[in-house]
């Protein structure tokens, strides 16, 4: 019973946080561009609009199942990320998982959806999937290396243990292991599918993308899971680098400040092509990561 209520609460919180954060992002974006921008609820309306469409077109069973897999993957991810520290609530099933599992769970859904895109038979969709996988290949290496520095620092893959080791502000990994944070920051933005690495699922203007054939309620489901997944990733980084949160307002505050940071970065840079993205990730963040490894592991004071 506890588990069910807890799971529902996590799903609900991540959804609400998701659309409010995205709404904020669009507002913020608009203000930077000297516009008024849509309301904070705009993403909720968009999502509801799609979920209330009366017609939905499928291209066969696999096309229908793809969005289901990605949504189930998003829910599973949310449930395996602990939202709160030292609490019975909002833990989901995170006791049974670990950081590496979460990193892989983040990819399960998109791969499932890639099957649906493929079965639609639209070459533009498959092109988008290939771009997505290519970008994934670029971002995952520095992202994982940065997280591995954290795992090495605490000698565990358990998110709970890493969170528990950061008691005060001074113990936050953000301050004890700043290299790791800098290394993961840009790949993290890319994994959120945010500008300047957003050519894959380009929201408005690029025709070729994984969503090219999705419409109606299936697209609504894709939007829903996207918002939940965004929050799950934010909470994960908060857990790992900002000491987690004791209660929901603090969680929202921390996640929001992190979101503000990433949003500010993504607003001011122009979009990169896929191969530029990969090349950039393998040069700058990965190079930094290698330097970090040399500094913390190879050099005598590290060991």
């Amino acid at each position: 019973m506890h588990a069910i209520v807890d799971s529902l609460a996590m799903i609900g919180i991540s959804y609400v946080m998701g659309f409010l954060f995205y709404g904020f992002y669009r507002q913020f974006n608009a203000r930077v561009q000297r516009r008024w921008g849509p309301s904070l609820w705009q993403n909720f309306f968009d999502n509801m609009k799609f979920l209330l469409k009366t017609e939905t077109l499928t291209h066969g069973p696999m096309f229908f199942l793809g969005p289901m897999i990605i949504a189930a993957g998003a829910i599973t991810t949310v449930l395996f990320v602990p939202f709160l520290k030292d609490s019975d609530w909002l833990q989901g099933f995170s006791e049974h998982g670990n950081l590496i599992l979460i990193i892989y769970l983040l990819v399960v859904g998109p791969l499932g959806n890639a099957l649906a895109v493929g079965s639609s038979g639209n070459p533009f969709g498959v092109m988008g999937v290939t771009r997505g996988l290519t970008r994934l290949m670029g971002l995952e290496v520095p992202f994982f290396l940065g997280l591995a520095l954290v795992m090495l620092q605490h000698e565990t893959t358990s998110v709970h243990a890493i969170m528990a080791a950061q008691d005060g502000l001074a113990q936050w990994n953000l301050f004890t292991n700043p290299i790791a944070f800098i290394v993961i920051l840009l790949p993290f933005i890319a994994s959120q599918n945010a500008s300047p690495f957003d050519v894959v699922g380009a929201p408005v203007e690029v025709y070729a993308g994984p969503r090219v054939e999705f419409g109606g309620r299936l697209l609504g489901l894709l939007m829903t899971q996207n918002m939940m997944m965004t929050v799950a990733k934010l909470v994960l980084v908060v857990d790992l680098f900002m000491g987690g949160a004791g209660n929901v307002p603090i969680l929202i505050l921390k996640a929001f400040s992190l979101f503000l940071l990433t949003a500010s970065i993504s607003l001011v840079f122009p979009r990169l092509k896929t191969e530029q993205t990969v090349d950039f990730f393998w040069k700058v963040p990965l190079g930094l990561g290698v330097l970090g490894v040399i500094a913390t592991v190879w050099l005598p004071w590290g060991a």
Binding site: P38, Q42, Y207, F214
Partner: peptide
């Protein structure tokens, strides 16, 4: 920016499906 239709929730879509 000048007229900013996005404030009314009007935004472009890449494909007819969306």
């Amino acid at each position: 920016s000048r007229f900013d239709a996005e404030r009314f929730g009007i935004i472009g879509a890449p494909t007819p499906r969306q």
